[in-house]
Simulated assay, not measured.
Amino acid sequence: MKVNGLQAELQAMKLEASNANKPASAQQVSEDFGALLGNAIKNVNGLQSQSSELATRFDQGDRSVSLSDVMIARNKSSVAFEATVQVRNKMVEAYKELMNMPV
């Protein structure tokens, strides 16, 4: 499951951040965050593609794909998508809060 991979990446980043001796530049932080966000979106896209492929194979009568496989894949992709939407909402909220701060 791709969520475990994302969790491992986040833990690795946490460890890397705690072991960093020199402060990172703003550009480096934004590039790292951008890469992490891009990878997370690619993982969600992969889960949705896999779910769609399994559903199509099941609909076509492929005996190697069971209904439970299709439902599990669909639920995984749904949970991953909902998590992505929630992260996006929090990011938009934080952006609006920053833009409303007096300078």
Rank of each mutant, 00 (worst) to 15 (best):
S78R: 05
S25Q: 03
Q11W: 02
N45Q: 14
N39T: 10
G38Q: 10
S66N: 12
A24S: 13
P102W: 07
S30I: 13
N89Y: 14
E97H: 09
A35F: 09
K14I: 00
D62L: 06
N19R: 15
L67C: 01
S18T: 06
S77G: 07
D32S: 15
Q11I: 05
N100F: 14
V3I: 15
Y95M: 15
V65H: 06
A35V: 00
D32N: 15
A20Q: 09
Q48P: 00
L98S: 12
T84K: 14
A8K: 08
N100C: 12
V70C: 03
Y95G: 03
A40V: 00
V70E: 04
E31V: 05
G38P: 01
D59I: 05
V92H: 10
Q28R: 10
L15T: 06
L36A: 05
L98R: 13
S52V: 06
M91Q: 07
E9I: 04
Q28E: 14
I41Q: 10
R74N: 13
V79A: 11
S77K: 01
A80V: 00
M91D: 00
A83E: 03
M71T: 10
D59C: 12
A80C: 02
K14Q: 13
V79L: 04
K22W: 03
K96W: 11
A73E: 04
Q11E: 07
K2C: 08
G38V: 00
R74M: 09
Q48E: 09
P102H: 07
L10V: 05
V3H: 08
F81T: 14
P102L: 09
S51G: 06
V65Q: 08
V85G: 03
S18N: 02
Q50T: 07
Y95W: 14
M1Y: 04
V103K: 12
V79S: 10
L98T: 05
K76L: 12
L98N: 11
M99W: 09
I41G: 01
G5V: 05
L10W: 01
G61D: 06
M13I: 09
V65Y: 08
D69F: 00
D59Q: 15
K14G: 02
Q27F: 06
E97F: 10
F81Q: 13
N100V: 00
G34R: 03
V29S: 02
L67D: 01
T56I: 15
V70H: 04
R88L: 09
S25N: 00
N21D: 10
F33T: 12
A80Y: 05
D69R: 00
T56N: 15
M13P: 01
I41R: 15
F81Y: 12
V44T: 04
V79F: 04
L10G: 03
E53R: 15
Q48M: 09
A24G: 02
S66Y: 01
K14P: 01
N4K: 09
T84N: 12
M1Q: 07
V3W: 10
A55C: 08
S68M: 15
K90H: 13
S30P: 01
Q60T: 08
S77C: 02
G5L: 07
L6I: 09
N39R: 14
V44R: 03
E82I: 08
V65R: 08
V44E: 03
M1F: 11
F33D: 12
A8Y: 03
V103W: 08
N19F: 07
